Computed example of a mutant assay.
Amino acid sequence: MYNVRLTHKEIDIQKIPEASRALREFVVSQSLSDYVFLRTCNRAEVYFIDDGVLPPNGFLFECGEEAFRHLLRVACGIESFVVGEGEILNQIREALEVAKKEGHCSAELARYFTDAIRVGRKARRLTRISRGKVSIVSLALEHLRGMLGDLTSKKFLVVGAGEIGTKVARALKNMNVEKILLSNRRYDKALRLASEVGGSAYRFSKLLDLVKEVDVIFCATSAPHLILTKDKLEVADHKLVVVDLSVPRNVEESIRELENVQLISFEDLAEKANLNMSQRMKEIKRVEEIINSELKKSKKDCLRNLYIYAERVRKKEVEKALRLLASEAPEKVINDLSVSLVKKLYHPLRKSQVVIQGGEND
């Protein structure tokens, strides 16, 4: 298996959408036929089996055991922007399902992903890596409670009814927030979400009017441009908190200059979450031990499967050679047997880089 990627560790998180577009162009240009594309707020990655592919310039490239190790680390949450977050498991599962549905995921590639999901669950069950507030939404709400106190009586506006906007709205409902306003470019989606959480839906054209009414605005859309700019928020004549969970940013950074407006960005929340990284290091080491154990087991399983496959091939080729000895020259039969064995054993050996890279002592 191969992996090509750019994540929050290599580039600014706001450049992830651009990296994602470049990676999709790579998939098309290389005519990949066996791949899974993983795109989240903080990563753009493609995992594939196809051989003879030249990785794009500027992207990280790994293969074999290192590619699988990275996938396991991602599934366990230790490669996330907010270490330990659990949403990545759902995102991996969804990426796999999309690849299967679109017909570009072999059983071999799917096994890597199902194993990663299993190991991700195991790591969370056996360690404390996901304890505490680790989702970006829960971090935002905890931060707001520290600033504003009781949130139930506050008036919230959620801009965006996609994945993140929906999580925010549901979290507010679970906290018994009394007034939840929702606005989305597609009004029908805002209506559906408002119905689910007991809120009120508004068209995008009403956004400026709503700014004057609410205490907190959550901006969580996938728009590639700014939605809330400094000039639009100048109308706020009361204390207003704006939380921007969009990637790329949907809120203009300069609104920090407004006297009545306070901005909380995606990066602000992630920095807050990782302040206690030293406390999580022990759990990260425990997760890495689980990953190493799984990789060792994977090598043993792979070796066993290779042996079973090689023995099956050997028996068939010997039976075929014995039949041919009755009518062909022994030298030719033996030569054809050796050539056929090399061809049939080379393909699975070439793909089993996890084993080959393991070394002679494994």
Rank of each mutant, 00 (worst) to 15 (best):
M1R: 09
Y2R: 13
Y2E: 12
N3Y: 06
L6V: 07
H8S: 12
K9D: 14
A19S: 11
R24H: 07
R24T: 01
S29P: 02
L32E: 05
S33I: 03
Y35N: 09
V36R: 01
T40Y: 06
N42K: 05
V46P: 09
F48P: 07
I49C: 14
D51A: 15
L54H: 12
L54M: 11
N57P: 08
L60S: 14
C63Q: 13
A67R: 02
A67T: 07
G77Y: 05
F81Y: 14
F81R: 04
L89F: 05
V98P: 00
K100Q: 11
G103K: 03
C105A: 07
S106L: 02
Y112F: 11
Y112A: 04
A116Y: 02
V119H: 02
V119K: 04
R121K: 15
R124K: 11
T127M: 07
R128I: 00
I129C: 08
I136H: 06
A140D: 06
R145V: 15
R145P: 13
M147D: 10
L148G: 10
G149K: 08
L151M: 14
S153I: 09
K154E: 14
V159P: 09
E163R: 14
I164Q: 10
M175S: 08
V177T: 10
V177A: 12
E178T: 09
K179T: 15
I180C: 09
L182N: 09
D188V: 06
K189M: 08
R192K: 12
A194N: 07
R203S: 10
K206L: 11
L207E: 06
L207S: 05
K212L: 04
D215T: 02
I217D: 00
F218T: 02
H225I: 14
H225K: 14
L228K: 09
T229M: 07
D231T: 13
K232G: 12
V235L: 13
K239M: 08
D244S: 01
V247Q: 11
V247S: 12
R249W: 08
R249H: 09
E253I: 04
E257G: 00
L258F: 00
N260H: 12
Q262H: 10
Q262S: 13
I264T: 02
F266E: 03
E267C: 00
L269F: 03
A270Y: 01
K272Q: 08
A273I: 01
N274V: 04
M277G: 01
M277N: 07
Q279G: 11
Q279N: 07
M281P: 01
K282Q: 08
K282R: 13
R286Y: 02
I290N: 01
L295M: 09
K296V: 03
K296I: 05
K297T: 08
L303Q: 08
V313I: 15
V313G: 08
R314K: 15
L324T: 09
L325G: 07
L325E: 10
A329T: 09
A329E: 15
A329D: 14
E331Q: 12
E331C: 02
E331R: 10
N335K: 14
D336Q: 13
L337I: 05
S340A: 11
K344D: 00
K351W: 02
Q353H: 04
Q353W: 03
V354A: 03
Q357W: 00
G359D: 03
E360W: 07
D362V: 14
